[in-house]
């Protein structure tokens, strides 16, 4: 068995150390090593977006990042989106707009949508559809997801 590598990183603002095999993806590390199962696996080849996380401020599919690449980086996941005060407006908007059915793609959509609104608080429907094109949803037909993101924009301004 390959030797384990010691990685020091920051996850959702908390300094975190873990041991992983060099061949393990960041997705595997989050789920199997750290027990953070909110990040989902849908395809393991970067095409569905269910495993979307923030990696030093950029959106990545964590199945295409190696665990060892997390060394010294800032990672944020679905588990870090809500605060002790409550849900993030994007999460609240998904609930109120029935923007999820089975919910497996939802963590990835929420991480990606939050990243969009953090940089473009006035994104229009076309921009939202473009930004979220890397996240597949098979249940909703996207209608209520797009409406939820537009609603979240209003909530964030209120």
């Amino acid at each position: 068995m390959p030797g384990l590598v010691h990685v020091s990183t920051t996850i959702n603002g908390n300094p975190t150390d873990f041991l992983c095999e060099p061949r393990q993806s960041l997705l595997e590390v989050l789920r199997d090593v750290l027990g953070m199962t909110g990040t989902k696996e849908g395809c393991n080849d970067g095409n569905c977006g269910a495993c979307t996380v923030m990696f030093d401020g950029r959106i990545v599919t964590s199945c295409l990042v190696l665990g060892v690449e997390a060394q010294g980086k800032e990672i944020s996941t679905i588990e870090g989106v809500a605060s002790p005060e409550g849900l993030h407006p994007v999460q609240q908007a998904f609930l109120e707009n029935a923007a999820l059915q089975c919910g497996i793609c939802t963590p990835g959509f929420i991480v990606a949508a939050k990243a969009l609104l953090d940089r473009e608080p006035d994104a229009d429907e076309g921009r939202i559809r473009h930004w979220l094109a890397g996240n597949l949803c098979r249940c909703t037909g996207y209608d209520k997801i797009v409406r939820a993101v537009l609603d979240a924009e209003d909530k964030m301004k209120a």
Binding site: M36, T39, I78, A82, L87, L100, G103, P107
Partner: peptide, 12 residues
């Protein structure tokens, strides 16, 4: 089950 599903807590 909504809150568990928007926060990543739901167990699949």
């Amino acid at each position: 089950d909504g809150v568990d599903k928007v926060t990543g807590r739901a167990q699949y």
